[in-house]
Write a protein that binds this DNA or RNA. Structure first.
Length: 421
RNA sequence: GGAGAGGUGGCCGAGUGGUCGAAGGCACCCGCUUGCUAAGCGGUUUCUCGCCGAAAGGCGGGACGGGAGUUCAAAUCUCCCCCUCUCCGCCA
């Protein structure tokens, strides 16, 4: 949710944001609705004030045993009028809310303006993919040969685009997850959470998946949705709260499965496990003050980057342009790892700062040192997701003779295995 | 899933349909006082929305789990929903 006073005071800021993101939104209509709604609120308040005065008088007179009939009639007609205006106001308010929830966040000043990935900005890391001195294979070939993925039987259980890790493959995935969690909890100081991943619409609205991405969610009975990312439960932990200043920043990490329909993404990228409906991810979420927001955001990026660095993956960090960010984000970095076999850069982590956008939607505030309340900054990043780190590991650590070497840092998590062969 | 009890301010806890944003206590902060492993006295302290204002602030509306209703008037009465606790049932 954007700051609604902007509609009244600085609509041009919103107009630019909408344009730069390529959103199709008629801001003038929303500004008009806002005016109408404010006028109705003012009218309502005046009416209520009058009604209260009359009611109070009725009370006084009744206690004195005096006649109140005329006044009560007046009060009743006021009450009727109030109900009338209330109804109008509620309708306008609902329409306003519906429209305003589609307004995207305002991009941070450092974000390049552009419409597609070609406008994204290289920040650091490898500029050119690494070169191998033998013919590298894509992960599906290696993993089937080594019997660590069963790509044929997974669809039998759940349909296409589901993963079945097997044997050392399953253990390798578990090793990655444990490795990530250990780094973030022990080295970076995050508190580990194991949250429920069935969440109601209100949570998804809070983090900004709703209403725009509704079609990408798996909906269960009881109006619960399978979380597409642990960002949803983690960010909603402090919903409707006022957090003490001394408790900030709050840093959470969680390993959870993630569920995404991603309808319509079939076609080109079906091979292997790059794009699937269910995957595992270690997520990082922070709540901070606005002052510390961007410093904490850079630290968050470093925390995510640390795991791909420790795994010695070929990677680069990109700053997404205005048109490439999700609509709730003010600034987003992607960490991309090169997959030697697929010969492409894979997005293994997306690190986003939402500023106060999610906090307004989920009503997450903190007490300022002066004693006021203000919205916190929320931000999150993958830390990181497994199918793609699994791909990166397999494809970059494959050997000429068809084995997979296990990186040093991971060996303690996988019975000190040196090679999958 | 069945039966019962309950949800009030940062916490505990009162509250007869009108003078209750809410007694009392705790906590907190600010004064004062005494001096001593601390106490006493006084005062302050909810959130939100609208309007005016450059701001400081001012004026007003609303909020006692959430929503609907009855009434001139609802924390207080009625209905629906959610959550918590106790007992029973079921169960990895």
């Amino acid at each position: 949710m954007i700051d609604l006073t902007l509609l009244k005071e600085k609509p041009e800021i919103l107009r630019d944001a909408i344009k730069h993101r390529g959103a199709d939104i008629d801001l003038d209509e929303i500004v008009e609705l806002d005016k109408k709604r404010r006028a109705l609120i003012t009218e309502l308040q005046d009416l209520r004030k009058e009604r209260n005065a009359v009611s109070e008088k009725v009370g006084t007179l009744k206690r004195q045993g005096k006649e109140t009939k005329t006044l009560m009639e007046k009060a009743r007609s006021l009450a009727d009028k109030i109900k009338d205006v209330e109804k109008k106001q509620k309708n306008i308010e609902a329409e306003f809310k519906e429209r305003v929830q589609w307004l995207p966040n305002i991009p941070h000043a450092s974000v390049p303006v552009g419409s597609g990935s070609e406008a994204n900005q290289y920040i650091r890391g490898l500029r050119e993919p690494p070169v191998f001195d033998f013919d590298v294979l894509p992960h599906w070939d290696i993993c089937e040969a080594l019997d660590v993925l069963d790509l044929k039987r997974a669809p039998k259980i759940s349909g296409s685009r589901f993963i079945l890790y097997k044997g050392l493959g399953a253990l390798l995935e578990r090793a990655l997850i444990n490795f990530f969690l250990d780094i973030h909890t022990k080295k970076h100081g995050y508190t580990e959470i194991s949250p429920p991943v069935l969440n109601p619409e209100s949570c998804l609205y809070g983090t900004g998946q709703f209403p725009k991405l509704e079609a990408d969610m798996y909906k269960c009975s009881d109006d619960l949705y399978l979380a597409p990312t642990a960002e949803v439960p983690l960010t909603n932990i402090h919903r409707e709260e006022i957090i003490a200043h001394k408790n900030l920043p709050i840093c959470y990490t969680a390993y959870t499965p993630c569920f995404r329909r991603e309808a319509g993404s079939y076609g080109k990228e079906v091979r292997g496990i790059k794009r699937v409906h269910q995957f595992n991810k270690v997520e990082l979420v922070k709540y901070t003050t606005p002052e510390d927001g961007y410093a904490e955001f850079e630290k968050l990026l470093n925390d995510a980057e640390e795991v791909v660095r420790l795994l010695e993956f070929p990677y680069r960090i990109m700053l997404l342009c205005t048109g490439d960010m999700t609509f709730a984000a003010a600034k987003t970095y992607d960490i991309e790892v090169y997959a030697a076999g697929m010969k492409e850069w894979l997005e293994v982590a997306s690190i986003s700062c939402y500023e106060q956008y999610q906090a307004r939607r989920a009503n997450i505030r903190y007490r300022t040192p002066k004693g006021n309340t203000d919205y916190v900054y929320t931000m999150n990043g993958s830390g990181v997701a497994t199918p793609r780190t699994f791909i990166a590991l397999v494809e970059n650590y494959q050997t000429k003779d068809g084995r997979i070497e296990i990186p040093e840092v991971l060996r303690p998590y996988i019975n000190n295995t040196e090679y999958i062969e």
